[in-house]
């Protein structure tokens, strides 16, 4: 208020003396009026929530937290997806290696990965090669004619597979489970 009066007085002081003076005084009067009216209106409209931005700011922080949370979730999902793919590929690879052992027809592999993505357990379900009665002599040596594998044959296959897996993947034999699909 004091500043407005000071300004008005100062402007009045530097007014040119002439016929235009009343017009300029009128304009200065308007200036004083609007300068006083503006704060009055602001005060009267003070019931409005002018601090809305502050609340928005808090809300924004919450949103950021949510975004971060969902970002972490997506990241975890991507890692688990990639783990699944690796698991699948590795299982295929292990099956292929196991099938190279003489006397094995098919191998189904199940893997267990540790939390840091390392191979911890291998489970192999082996289908031995079933021989026809009139097939070559070598196969006759391995498998019995009644289509059931003898224990010594099984042991030989298990030892061979275990040996390969231990050497290839650096696993302990206790972490490798081999089962035979029979019948």
């Amino acid at each position: 208020m004091l500043v407005i009066i000071l300004l008005a007085s100062f402007l009045e002081l530097i007014l040119p003396n002439g016929k235009i003076k009343p017009f300029v005084r009128f304009a200065i009067g308007l200036f004083i009026l609007i300068s006083i009216l503006n704060p009055v209106l602001n005060f009267l409209n003070s019931d409005k929530d002018w601090h809305l931005d502050l609340w928005n700011y808090n809300e924004k922080i919450l949103n950021e937290e949510e975004i971060l949370k969902s970002g972490i979730q997506i990241n975890e999902q991507l890692i688990s997806n990639s783990d699944e793919i690796i698991k699948e590929k590795l299982a295929g690879q292990i099956s292929a290696v196991a099938m190279l052992v003489e006397g094995i027809e098919t191998v189904e592999t199940k893997l267990v990965l540790s939390s840091n993505g390392e191979l911890s357990t291998i489970s192999l379900l082996v289908s031995p090669e079933i021989l026809a009665s009139d097939n070559n002599e070598k196969q006759l040596e391995i498998f019995s004619t009644n289509k059931i594998l003898k224990d010594e044959e099984k042991e030989r296959l298990v030892n061979k597979i275990l040996n390969i897996m231990e050497n290839m993947y650096g696993l302990d034999s206790s972490n490798i489970k081999i089962e035979f699909k029979e019948g």
Partner: peptide
């Protein structure tokens, strides 16, 4: 400092200049 809209003072100064 008085938080008065500068537009009004600018107008007054223009009026003064014209006068």
């Amino acid at each position: 400092r008085a938080e008065i809209n500068y537009f009004f003072l600018a107008t007054i100064l223009k009026i003064l200049g014209v006068a």
